[in-house]
Design a protein around this nucleic acid. Sequence first.
RNA 1: GCCGGGAUGGCGGAAUUGGUAGACGCAGCGGACUCAAAAUCCGCCGCCGCGAGGUGUGGGGGUUCGAGUCCCCCUCCCGGCACCA
Length: 686
Amino acid sequence: PGWPERVKTMQANWIGKSVGVRFAFTHDIRDNGQLIDDGKLWVFTTRADTIMGVTFCAVAAEHPLATLAAKSNPELAAFIEKCRQGSVMEADIATMEKEGMDTGLTVTHPLTGEQVPVWVGNYVLMTYGEGAVMAVPAHDERDFAFAQKYKLPIKQVIQHVNLYTAESKTRFPKSDYEHLYFDTALWKEWYASKSADEVLVFNSGKYDGLSYEDAVDAIAADLKAKGLGDKQINWRLRDWGVSRQRYWGCPIPIIHCDTCGDVPVPDDQLPVKLPEDCVPDGSGNPLNRREDFINCSCPKCGKPAKRETDTMDTFVDSSWYYARYATSTAASGFNSDAMVDAETNHWMPVDQYIGGIEHAILHLLYSRFWSKVMRDLSLVNYDEPFANLLTQGMVLNHIFSRRTDKGGIEYFAPEEVELVHDEHGKVTGAKLLADGQPVDFQGMGTMSKSKRNGVDPQSLIDQYGADTARFFMMFAAPPEQTLEWSDSGVEGSHRFLKRVWAYGHALSGETASELPAKLAGNPANARREIHATLKQANYDLDRQQFNTVASATMKMLNALEKLQKDAESHWQGVAREGFSILLRLLSPIAPHITQTLWRELGYGDDILQAAWPQPEESALVQDEIELVIQVNGKLRGSMTVARTLDKPAIEQLAVTQPCVQKYLEDGGSVRKIIVVPNKLVNIVIG
RNA sequence: GCCGGGAUGGCGGAAUUGGUAGACGCAGCGGACUCAAAAUCCGCCGCCGCGAGGUGUGGGGGUUCGAGUCCCCCUCCCGGCACCA
């Protein structure tokens, strides 16, 4: 619930729940007389409604049928080998050329009894579903392209709704309604539609005329009756291989013994420690070359044995480190006998988790998964690790660089460089302070040591103080957003806090009398501005938009500084009230200066104990309001009216305004008047 | 390719349910103070135009009295795609 919607959708897509039908094509294909997979080629499909349009099957390179066919077909064996060497990266699979090869084998269609050829396809994944798919070229874009490439038959089994009956075909003659007709040469979007408003099953015997849902139900039922299939839920989620051939992961505590096999490292020999003087050189796992690490003796039989050198995926550790933090206690320190103890249930789940958006799927999904496993093992009693999640945007900064004589690239830190502006203030380039010569500044990227574009918040704190650093970071941008760093705004934040300080000290000498029931003029305006700004700021706090809360405090100071200091205007009362609101609103953003001023002005001892300010409705009311006047939706002027003026009177008054009359003179007449209370009047002239 | 997010002045960003686009700040320009500079204070500041006015929220279309906001199509940028973490 406390998670951003977009992270939840990304995870849902990643888990990839998919409802469909699992069914089998039958066959009598044998390897050395042994029937393969009991004579069944299982496939999974979300489009069982198109089952009568199957013209071939495609299996993964690792599928048993492919392996068998390759035994007697060297060309196919070579193709399978090529597929195996291809990337398993999803991005590569999606963009690579779809290729395939006929196995020469056929299987029997479970409903029609027809013989269907079996192909090997490089786009079929052994790890998803059954490692085999039915192919319906007429109604799947990928199968369509594949069938065209290899000249395989295309059989239409879905018809556009408008063409469904013979009668409607005369109403939609092909010459005029080309787009509604199926054409084996050209893919059209509706071929793959599931919508009953667009398409119905066709050319499929008893299933003709059914919608997607009805056809899937009917076909699943018939397959079930034959014992050849049923509805099934499939997941995109794959198994998690946790071992890595890398040095820096957590060691896997296993010892390989020639006699005893894989033996776990006994408890009293844990933890297995990695050598600390290992230098990765990019050529595989450096642990494999460390005889001192690898050689050990078998805990069971004592003979010489080899230690496992694979380490665990770092996601393993990051999936539950927080639970371990919650296991430490002040009295005993970290519990060294158990993974977690009862303390964990007290502290977990994490109230507020903060991390970059790049973790939206992997780390956050693994952590949730891991928590649920620990819950199932009764190690913990919660099932979600993070109650609320804030996904930060990345912070980018300019990359200043220059080509060196030797052809390399030299990077410069922001403080070594000065920006060059044109007469409008637009940045046109940058030059190095040391020699005044230009440097390239086009690049923008995440902060990194090698590119020297990082900014250490400590340097801001050293120069301006913690309050300014905090204020600036809150003010710059909403946290979820990608931020292009610029420290030019820091000065402004610092200036603002200095003004707050100066204003507070000027005010500390003033004494205030009680505010009268009704203010007028300048002090009333200032007070309204402050309370209206407060109302908005409280709303923004609620929805966690802190940059506008920071700007609200600036607006309040602007209003206070405009207060006229007339003797009889009660300005001191308005100022003291307004400044107390400002301080409290600012206190979470700039805690130190606000606490000091709070005390010095005698508002109280501790600003953290003070009640959060609430706007006073009576301060917000105005006797007169300004209404914007639009003609045909375009801004043409404004008028000031009494707050209580009713709608007919507003309409009447608006029409008489010169800015409206101007448009009536040309002969138009008023067609309609729209009044938005307290905002505007729109006069439609036609 | 698929999934998710985004595009508003010179810059960072505001705009609650469709209702005055550009709040607040930065940079820039002009002025005051100063021998001078810094600091501070006052004013100007989307674009085109002397002006009236026109135009403007990535591009094209639509709905509406009225669109940054809603609908359709497109472009570009960023994140993720399971061995970077």
